[in-house]
């Protein structure tokens, strides 16, 4: 155990943990939104994320003509490339999420299938998407070109603050605020909240359930796509199996914060990112999952509905 490292490099680790947590938080929003509305754990959401990373990759090379051997771009060209890749990733993920809902869940729902059947259908979609990408990428990881030179912005209490991670934390924060506003203020957002509280009453009040569900999947997909872009910008590579570990972590974050609860998912994401980084430093990276998940179990033992609670109708989606 190395508590001295945690003390000496505290701010650096905190900063790295927040950047990782921002990615978890964005992915976990998709799990929590869908659960809030359908009471369904969308196991294909990790692949919605994975497809987002490939969306950014295709946009960088196909639309913006960036080659992996190119030098990083600067000025307007860099900003344009970043924005195009972000939008491409968000759209790729959002349309995948909507397509998954249409193909795998909608029919089952109409025919009154059990929750278990829907859950198995979700796992089936997840596996077929992973295998499909495994085949078309020949099982090889793909590199993402460096679009923006990574440099240190400033030095703070022993921590080097790097530009790409600042962008990830700030942009992720803005997206979450936008989603929160959408859910609480807009008409469609109110529809989502109404359905999540009581589906039948919402229908009687004239809410179009199918439309609400499509919007829910689309919004969750947009957030996963943003996470995919930030992930690939930071780590600069992806593969068919990239969604697996991140998906599990993000799902954990959603449960930790209280699944079905938007702000809970956000909080859970950041807490998990920090927890993983701190435990890696103190106990060694191999112990990261062990310690993090023991903490999760302990939290759930004390508060089974997660830190923020599952059924706070006001704070809930």
């Amino acid at each position: 155990m190395d508590f001295a490292l945690l003390r000496d490099a505290f701010w650096g680790l905190t900063f790295d943990g927040l950047a990782l947590g921002a990615i978890y938080a964005l992915i976990s929003l998709g799990y929590t939104l869908v659960y809030g509305v359908l009471r369904l754990i969308n196991f294909a959401h990790s692949e919605v994320f994975m497809i987002g990373t490939f969306g950014a990759l295709v946009a960088a090379s196909g639309i913006m003509g960036v080659k992996v051997e190119d030098d990083p771009r600067t000025g307007g060209s860099m900003i344009l490339t970043l924005v195009v890749c972000l939008i491409a990733a968000m759209l790729a993920s959002a349309f995948t999420a909507v397509a998954v809902e249409f193909v795998a869940y909608r029919r089952l729902r109409k025919r009154g299938a059990t929750k278990l059947a829907t859950l198995i259908s979700a796992i089936g979609v997840s596996i077929s998407l992973v295998e499909f990408f495994r085949i078309i990428t020949h099982s090889l990881p793909r590199e993402f070109p460096r679009i923006m030179e990574k440099s240190f912005l400033f030095h703070f209490a022993g921590a080097d603050i790097r530009n790409d991670k600042v962008i990830v934390i700030v942009a992720a924060g803005l997206m979450m605020v936008a989603l929160d506003q959408f859910i609480s203020k807009s008409r469609l957002g109110k529809g989502i909240r109404a359905v999540s509280m009581d589906e039948n009453t919402a229908t009687l009040m004239g809410v179009n359930i199918n439309r609400v569900i499509t919007v829910t999947f689309f919004a969750g997909g947009l957030m996963a796509g943003a996470a995919a872009f930030f992930y690939i910008l930071t780590y600069e590579n992806t593969s068919f199996k990239v969604g697996f570990f991140l998906g599990i972590s993000a799902f954990t974050a959603a449960v930790l914060g209280g699944i079905g609860n938007l702000r809970g998912a956000l909080f859970g994401g950041f807490v998990l990112g920090l927890m993983e980084t701190y435990t890696s430093a103190v106990f060694g990276t191999a112990w990261k999952a062990v310690i993090s998940f023991i903490i999760l179990v302990l939290v759930l033992l004390i508060k089974p509905t997660g830190l923020f609670g599952e059924s706070i109708t006001q704070a809930r989606v």
């Binding site: 680790l13 790295d16 780590y235 990239v242 570990f245 980084t277 990276t285 191999a286």
Partner: peptide, 13 residues
């Protein structure tokens, strides 16, 4: 340090 296969973030290491 041990970073099991599948590790993506090496900040702590």
């Amino acid at each position: 340090d041990v970073t099991p296969t599948g590790t993506t973030d090496f900040s702590a290491t």
